[in-house]
């Protein structure tokens, strides 16, 4: 479903400020599977998703999704219609109400307004947001509620591929766990292919069919959820150790 071929991203190449973030990333995500990407802060995980969406242009390499290339500008919209993305900060449009946010994204894809409103209410219920939230603006919601609303917007179009950028970061453990289960159920009901970025190992164990570790500009390790606990890859071992609170000083 999704194939990264030797993806390289260098910001401002050829200048003194050149910053190489991804260097020859190869990754294949099968249709209907859920892939979790782990990695240190600032290693380029968000960049990986933005490159996948074509929001940041590639320096070299290619990404193929459902037979379309990210480099193919003439089919840009068809390419992007594959995706529903939950951004790291939610990225709800703050000039619109919560309901307005979802209705807008549906209407933009040619769904009639009454139908869009109906779907929006349905999706808000699916992410367990109350009716009263509909008429509020994003700034009037708590972080967890914003994440839910953003999720509702991402899934409103029932995309084939779901991308989640740190869905549980900045939430308390209970809310985080609730969101994690919500994501799992959403992926299941839509039968979607999913890529989730997270630092949260509990979420990884719930969501992942496969786990990848992004390190030093590459996919440094990948394996199944079960392999995560038995591997002796030093990076994974230290990641797990740090997550259990056994920090090396």
């Amino acid at each position: 479903m999704i194939t990264f071929n030797a993806v390289t991203k260098i910001f401002s190449p050829g200048t003194p400020y050149a910053l190489s973030v991804l260097q020859g990333v190869d990754l294949h995500v099968e249709k209907g599977t859920s892939c979790v990407i782990l990695g240190h802060s600032g290693v380029g995980k968000s960049v990986l998703l933005k490159v996948l969406l074509g929001l940041i242009s590639l320096t070299s390499g290619d990404i193929i999704v459902g037979g379309l290339s990210v480099r193919d500008r003439t089919h840009r919209n068809a390419y992007r219609h594959h995706f529903g993305m939950l951004f790291q900060g939610g990225a709800l449009f703050d000039s619109m109400t919560i309901l307005g946010n979802i209705v807008f994204s549906l209407v933009e894809r040619g769904i009639s307004r009454p139908k869009a409103t109906e779907i929006a209410h349905e999706k808000l219920a699916a992410v367990k947001l109350e009716e009263r939230v509909c008429s509020l603006f994003p700034s009037e919601l708590s972080g967890g509620m914003q994440k839910r609303a953003a999720l509702a917007r991402a899934i409103a179009l029932e995309p084939k591929i779901l991308l989640f950028d740190e869905p549980t970061t900045g939430l308390d453990p209970v809310t985080g766990a609730n969101i994690t289960y919500l994501l799992r159920d959403t992926i299941r009901t839509l039968g979607a292919t999913a890529i989730t970025i997270t630092h949260d190992l509990a979420a990884t164990r719930v969501l992942a069919d496969r786990v990848c570790l992004l390190d030093a500009k590459k996919i440094a390790w990948q394996g199944t959820r079960q392999e995560l606990d038995v591997t002796d890859n030093p990076l994974i071992v230290s990641f797990l150790k740090a997550a259990r609170g056994e920090l090396d000083s």
Binding site: F83, G89, A91, L92, E108, R109
Partner: peptide
């Protein structure tokens, strides 16, 4: 602030 909070990215992702 829309750029910084990724709202512009969200617009593009929606095909707007």
């Amino acid at each position: 602030s829309m750029r910084v909070s990724e709202q512009i990215d969200a617009l593009e992702t929606l095909g707007v």
